[in-house]
Design a protein around this nucleic acid. Structure first.
Lengths: 137, 137
DNA sequence: ACAATAAATAGTAATAATTACGATTTATAT
DNA sequence: ATATAAATCGTAATTATTACTATTTATTGT
């Protein structure tokens, strides 16, 4: 996923291409790590001092729907990052301080031998947590 | 973990054995599934109409510290369940509606081949989500 | 059993993340 | 350039969680 493709997706789905959306997309493309709504506000407040959370959350939600962003929840907070370029299903090793990630190759679902048939499965989550070298230094 | 052992642990660590704690422990022992703070309040409100969230959360936190309860976070909400009797490290298949669980045998950490050395690992989470037979019927 | 004491609790307020809403502004198509 | 529907702002509402103070209560030693 790159910014040009994200813009294309937005327009194809009938969403307007606004300055705020442009900057949000660029921010995630630049940072390539999990960010909270508050962090988005902080990054963009020099350009958009009055940027409201309504706008931030609505756009984050649209970006997730379009597959532009991936979402997770860390410590009770929603976090978002640019979808990894590989495109295929994957999981993450995540720095709890800065949101930096590393892709984990295998998906544990393939190895599960437990009988899951009693449940109608809708999804799963596998994340490894820690602190990256910058954040422990 | 059974209620008697939980009570023993509480006393050993210098906590008082109160009626509210007794009922909370019994509730989790009976239900054997993930419950939210609000659900705890609802279950106990006939016996304790004025039971405050301060009390509920403080006790939940103590129980987690003592290993009596396990904690997770689903959809932005903290959920708690009685620690599984097996005692060893495990993961869960979880019903998103009622909190019922099934233990998953394998831990995916054993199979990870990705190099994790760039991070100082502190933990991981593996959960499978779905709806149990009662909740889909 | 009784009194002393330190912890637990109720009632309520504060905090924090997220969602919602009416009025206004703006991107886009014509 | 204009019409129009979507996007945004400013702010309020909502929800889960945590915090605070006065009061109550479980425990301990006598």
């Amino acid at each position: 996923m790159d910014v040009l493709r994200a813009i294309k997706l937005l327009k194809e789905e009938g969403y307007k291409y606004t300055d705020k959306r442009k900057h949000m997309l660029q921010l995630f493309a630049d940072e390539k790590r999990y960010l909270s709504a508050r962090e988005v506000q902080e990054f963009l407040k020099t350009n958009f001092p009055g940027l409201s959370f309504d706008t931030i959350y609505r756009n984050l939600s649209i970006f997730v729907d379009l597959g532009i962003l991936e979402e997770t929840e860390l410590d009770g907070e929603k976090k978002f990052r640019y979808t990894c370029p590989s495109g295929k299903h994957h999981h993450h090793l995540i720095c709890l301080k800065c949101g930096k990630t590393k892709e984990i190759d295998a998906c544990p679902m393939e190895k599960v031998t437990t009988d899951l048939s009693e449940f109608q499965i809708t999804g799963h989550k596998f994340e490894i947590y820690g602190y990256c070298s910058q954040c422990t230094a």
